[in-house]
Amino acid sequence: MKTTVNKYINKHISFKKSINFLSVVALLSMISCGGGTENESLDAELPADSIASAANVSGDVLNDLIQSIPSPVEMATVIKVSGGEYNERILNNTDNVDKYNNSYKQAFNIGIYSADLGYINIYEKTMSTMSYVSAIKTLADQIKVGQFFDFATLKNLASNSKNSDSLLYISMSSFNKMDSYLREQKRGELSVLIITGAWLEGLHIASEVAKVKASDDIVEKIGEQKIVLNNLLLIVNLYNKIPYFANVAAELEKLKALYDQVTITYEYAEPETKEVNGQLVIVDNSTSKINMTEAQLKKIIETTTAIRTQLVH
């Protein structure tokens, strides 16, 4: 954790924010020192006031980190553009929705299903859209954010595959509103689980595609998740007093150990800008390179599959 925090300080946030964040971590660590009982269930929930205090203290840092996590739709788009075949069997079956019987599992699997929905929409498979929207709506209602999913509108749009752009826009903006609402309501821990689930499912889909055909784009995309995972672990660890989060963090740490062997090198060059038809276009002359061996990729894929299986079932 210490190493991760140090890296984060160096790379991602200003000194002032770092102090703020370290205070949060220190405070939460002190709170965590009491530990849990040996028989503590992974599903046990913290008293609302404990969660609220964590969310209050870390408000700005939490918001910043949550917002920095890329949308799973980006991953789905890369998969499609790189020629990946659509495969619904790799998605989480919507029949599983009844298995998620506490708010943490529900939030996590809203994230899982949201990434699946993004994948479905990118491939314009609107026939499958409704069962996923329905699963998300069911789980969202259970954690009292179902009002952000306009089921009727989405159902209308899903009736025609030509509406996939609108479906994508409305579903994405709905998730955006839901996330903002949860954080405003001091329920940021559920937002954290939603984005963690969405991120893991995106990586899972990419991994499944890479098992069949590891195109350069997909490999690059999997490799760059090193950056996202580091940010994600920071926010998951903010709540590691909650057994469910501690379990998620422990699983993600397995991936992090593998990603620590992956390096990203940068070459900086001054950017340029130009105006094209009244719009400002940036010409980026810097480059980055992901250094990841086939063996490292294979391990990451295997571990992703194992973690996703553990957390979804």
Binding site: Y266, G278, L280, I282
Partner: peptide
Amino acid sequence: SSFDKKTKKHYPTLNYPCSATGV
């Protein structure tokens, strides 16, 4: 920046083709 200080012009969009992954 969406504001060009030299020309005092505001641009409504920035288009950024990313060539280096990162925050």
